[in-house]
């Protein structure tokens, strides 16, 4: 469409070139927006490449989405304030572990802690994953933003005397 769109397509092309089939899905819905889903195995390589080589130095936030058996973690990366790249990666609910990106982007500390609080994804190598949003004494296995924890269920759990 426009010059910018090609720039975005270029980024997608480079990503595909880098990790090949590990780019599971990619989409450029409009100028300055990119969605890329990568395989868990290639995630470390992809994010390192994006931050170090492609100039995506700003992480706007990290979103966690419950997609059934898996949790989709979306890294909203930004280049120069302009292009917003959403790098998605899926981890299973049984063992939701991802490498931390705080060594690449120190500003991601709170976002990672937030995702850890609310969806139970742990980030390997993060200096401190203590609760940041949930109160002390929150039951450790209750992850509010997972779909199986409906409002009723959580209320019931906490009303039961709050035993942890």
């Amino acid at each position: 469409m426009t010059e910018e769109t090609t720039e975005e397509n270029e980024i997608v092309r480079k990503m595909k070139h880098l990790i090949g089939k590990n780019v599971l899905e990619s989409e450029v819905p409009r100028p300055r927006r990119i969605f890329i889903l990568v395989n868990e195995k290639a995630f470390g390589k992809a994010i390192r490449y994006l931050t170090k080589k492609m100039g995506f130095t700003h992480v706007s936030t990290i979103t966690g989405v419950d997609v059934g058996k898996e949790i989709e973690v979306i890294y909203h990366l930004n280049r120069g304030g302009k292009i917003e790249l959403s790098l998605k990666v899926r981890v299973t609910k049984d063992k939701p572990v991802l490498p931390t990106i705080t060594d690449l982007i120190p500003g991601a500390t709170l976002y990672e802690r937030e995702v850890h609080d609310l969806l139970g994804v742990s980030f390997e190598g993060h200096p401190d994953l203590s609760p940041v949003i949930l109160p002390e004494g929150w039951p450790p296995d209750v992850y509010p933003l997972r779909k199986e924890w409906t409002l009723k269920k959580v209320q019931k759990r906490i009303m039961k005397g709050g035993k942890q």
């Binding site: 949930l134 004494g137 409002l151 209320q155 009303m159 005397g161």
Partner: peptide, 20 residues
């Protein structure tokens, strides 16, 4: 602080919302 869903007083563990 916009996420999660029930406001819990951490000492006494009671929910500050509505019916409960």
């Amino acid at each position: 602080d916009r996420m999660a869903f029930v406001n819990v007083n951490n000492n006494k563990q009671w929910i500050l919302s509505g019916e409960e």
